[in-house]
């Protein structure tokens, strides 16, 4: 049976394992022919969309891995606007609105509201959160 998943990521990359586990979980369910309705990045999880993250060369760039997965499978990656703005993850439009110099939201992600998470919960068969 094929299931549709709504994934919530609340852990920030490099501080805990959860965002990497979320990545691996998403890859695993796609491999098994399940689908992903939406991946919603909330609370500290919004840091996964920060394109300014620059790890040492021998470490994996987690935002880039999300981007690659998004591109390969046309996934809907949404970062929560209120979580993101509090933490300085910002796209071009919001940067203009708040008169902030520069923007750092990685391509492949979109900024959205909590309504999009509620919508994902309603429409998916399974709801899973990654984060402590």
């Amino acid at each position: 049976m094929s299931l549709c998943f709504a994934i919530l990521v609340t852990g920030q990359p490099y501080s805990d394992q959860s965002s990497k586990t979320a990545l691996q979980f998403c890859k695993a369910i796609i491999e098994r022919q399940h689908s992903i309705y939406r991946i919603f990045f909330f609370n500290d999880g919004v840091h996964c969309a920060n394109s300014f993250i620059t790890p040492p060369q021998d470490e994996q760039a987690i935002p880039k891995q999300w981007q690659a997965l998004q591109k390969e499978h046309d996934l809907d990656l949404v970062i929560c606007v209120s979580s993101a703005l509090r933490r300085g993850v910002i796209d071009q439009k919001e940067a203009q609105r708040y008169d902030v110099t520069g923007h750092n939201m990685a391509e492949g992600f979109n900024i959205g509201g909590l309504g999009q998470w509620v919508d994902a919960c309603i429409n998916a068969d399974r709801v899973i959160r990654f984060g402590s």
Binding site: C80, R86, L114, G115, W117, V118
Partner: peptide, 19 residues
């Protein structure tokens, strides 16, 4: 931890969408 507050916001948003 901010998750206490932000998760509460999520619950409010859920109710605002008539659930």
């Amino acid at each position: 931890h901010s998750l206490a507050r932000e998760a509460l916001d999520m619950a409010l948003a859920t109710a605002a969408f008539d659930q």
